[in-house]
Design a binder for these strands. Structure first.
Lengths: 178, 178
DNA sequence: GCGCATTTCTTGGCCGACCAAGTTAATCTC
DNA sequence: GAGATTAACTTGGTCGGCCAAGAAATGCGC
């Protein structure tokens, strides 16, 4: 304990190096970090997906469709938890791009049945690959242990944000108390 | 170093409980987590900021303006690392909302000087408070140690995504090798 | 049956974000 | 100094998101 006049004498109790951070964000260094990581991650995903003819965000819709087969649009909306209007427009574009087919539900004439087209099955493989690539790019240099740790912490954070948003997909309280 | 028969005999090598995850995303459980957390975090931030008359994303612009005072728009663009056109439109709206003032730079008649208005200084305080609230909401239930850990891991992830995006704000390699 | 609420989806508008192309001013080159 | 290049925005278009308001079909009460 010597020759370490400390970085800046005073309060060094913030999780991230809050140096060179906007003053207004000093109260939330991790939030700032989350925002930046979020943006970079979305950009990286977008870059990988662009080559496949998908726009960022459409992946999640397609993923659900691949998993479930034909679904009612209302189901899909609940699953991805987006605004109905958002899903409508995305589906219109995905349909025009040939990735998705829509037809009225004979059981309920207000509803719409959605399913992925056959040609989109090739996409499934590619998306899977891209998603793995993104994962590795994201976690490069982290030990398996650190990865587990990160996943654990992010799950807790997700639960926190979920409960407050009152939008918890049923796993909120489970993870919150872990 | 004993009694660690591994968490669960079989292929339990994925960081997050990949059960009940889209098949196409099995290769990237953490990426999925990042996406979800990102969205929830942005929603939470938006909710807090809406009461202040700000739209999600504008905060970062304002934060920089509050820190630096009058800046050239090009500087601002570099700082927040957004598309020039995005910044132009955001500033037009922020100006119309009275949060920002713009005037031509006498030194260089193509450039534009931007500064936060006096009335926006009230906002600074509120944003600071909101940002702190968001931080606590995000990290609720995490010990100081876990928070530091999370910040550390996120910083590494940021560096990873940064280097690959070739968009590193100069801190990439520093954090990548930590 | 009739009316009224509910569910399901669509449309229009707005904002953040991107790209591509254009305009104006400064700067570099010869 | 004239011409080409570069820098600093702006405009128009597109997409992912949201909200608000509408249209259409179903279901419920009576």
């Amino acid at each position: 304990m010597k020759a370490e006049t400390n970085t800046a004498g005073a309060a060094q109790d913030d999780p991230a190096c809050s140096a060179r951070l906007p003053l207004a964000a000093r109260n939330g260094p991790v939030s700032m970090l989350v925002s930046r990581v979020a943006r970079l991650h979305r950009i990286a995903a977008g870059k990988l997906l662009k080559g496949l003819g998908l726009y960022p965000g459409q992946e999640f819709l397609m993923m659900h469709l691949w998993d479930t087969g034909p679904v009612r649009q209302s189901e899909l909306i609940k699953a991805v938890d987006l605004d109905p209007s958002t899903v409508t427009k995305m589906l219109q574009r995905l349909e025009q791009a040939g990735h998705v087919r829509r037809r009225p539900d004979p059981e309920d004439r207000r509803a719409v049945l959605v399913e992925s087209t056959e040609t989109s099955c090739a996409l499934l493989t590619e998306v899977q690959r891209s998603w793995g690539e993104l994962e590795e790019q994201t976690l490069a240099g982290l030990t398996p242990d650190e990865r587990v740790q990160l996943a654990r912490l992010l799950t807790r954070v997700e639960a926190n944000l979920c409960t407050e948003t009152a939008d918890c997909p049923e796993e909120a309280r489970r993870a919150a108390l872990r």
